[in-house]
């Protein structure tokens, strides 16, 4: 795959919480149709990074451009237009407990003021559910679903607006290895089917190996190393090597 058009560019990003400097001069670019995994230890600032990208956290310094538009100083209306094109899969799935699967999937459609008839809404919901293989759960409540099913439904909700970019926050965390593997396969299928660009936050090396076109190592708040999985696997720097040695031990 030849990366071409840039869909997201992060320049000189800084984010601190008091004296805890989480992101320090972080730079990164995501191209159309590629899957990039941001690899880092727990607490290294991976989740903070994608929350800055989606506008849930404001960076202290630096710029984040999504589709050539700087999101830093956008008001809520402008930000919502960008968010309609960027899907976000939360680590905890964040399904609304009080709503059925159908209502969970309809929620982003209705809230983003997308003018579609009820019939079209039904078709879009069914299509998203079929993509994740859970069409039969349409009238169930999230509490009735297993962890893996909830993750798939959350993915279906992310897909419903046909986003150009998908941000995955630790998509396999809390799942057993088989279910985690199924989720990774699903992410790869989605990329092929919709030609989405994805930014995947993970420390699961199976996910990194299978889902990534490119890997970025986040260390000490900065983009410490970048390259393909194969390139980084043979990296000589001990800070990079530790991630891959850990996989070998597993």
């Amino acid at each position: 795959m030849t990366p071409s058009e840039s869909v997201m560019k992060i320049s000189h990003l800084y984010k601190s919480f008091g004296n805890n400097h989480v992101l320090i001069d972080f730079n990164f670019e995501l191209y159309k149709g590629e899957n990039v995994v941001v690899l880092g230890k727990s607490g290294s600032g991976k989740s903070v990074l994608i929350k800055c990208i989606i506008g849930l956290l404001k960076p202290d310094e630096g710029t984040i451009d999504v589709f050539d538009q700087c999101i830093n100083d956008m008001d809520d209306t402008e930000l919502d237009k960008i968010r309609a094109k960027v899907g976000f899969l939360f680590q905890s799935n964040a399904l609304y407990d009080s709503m059925t699967v159908r209502e969970n999937l309809e929620f982003p459609l209705r809230r983003h003021w997308i003018e579609v008839s009820q019939e079209e809404v039904n078709n879009m919901v069914m299509e998203a559910l079929e993509d994740v293989g859970l069409a039969h759960t349409i009238d169930m409540m999230p509490i009735e679903l297993s962890g893996g099913m909830r993750k798939r439904i959350a993915l279906a909700r992310t897909l419903i607006l046909k986003p150009d970019i998908i941000l995955y926050d630790e998509p396999t965390t809390g799942l057993d290895s088989i279910t985690g593997s199924e989720i990774i396969s699903l992410m790869i299928e989605i990329k092929k089917k919709y030609n989405t660009s994805s930014l995947i936050i993970s420390h699961d090396m199976n996910c990194v190996r299978r889902a990534s076109d490119r890997v970025v190592v986040l260390y000490d708040g900065t983009c410490y190393a970048a390259g393909t999985y194969a390139e980084l696997q043979h990296h000589t720097d001990p800070k990079v090597k530790q991630f891959f040695e850990q996989e070998f031990k597993q």
């Binding site: 929350k51 809520d76 968010r83 976000f88 905890s92 964040a94 609304y96 982003p108």
Partner: peptide
């Protein structure tokens, strides 16, 4: 409180809702 800790409030914001 439960919505906050399970990121449902963030999910709402991402879904174009205040």
């Amino acid at each position: 409180g439960s919505m906050k800790v399970t990121e449902q409030i963030d999910a709402m914001e991402v879904s174009g809702t205040n």
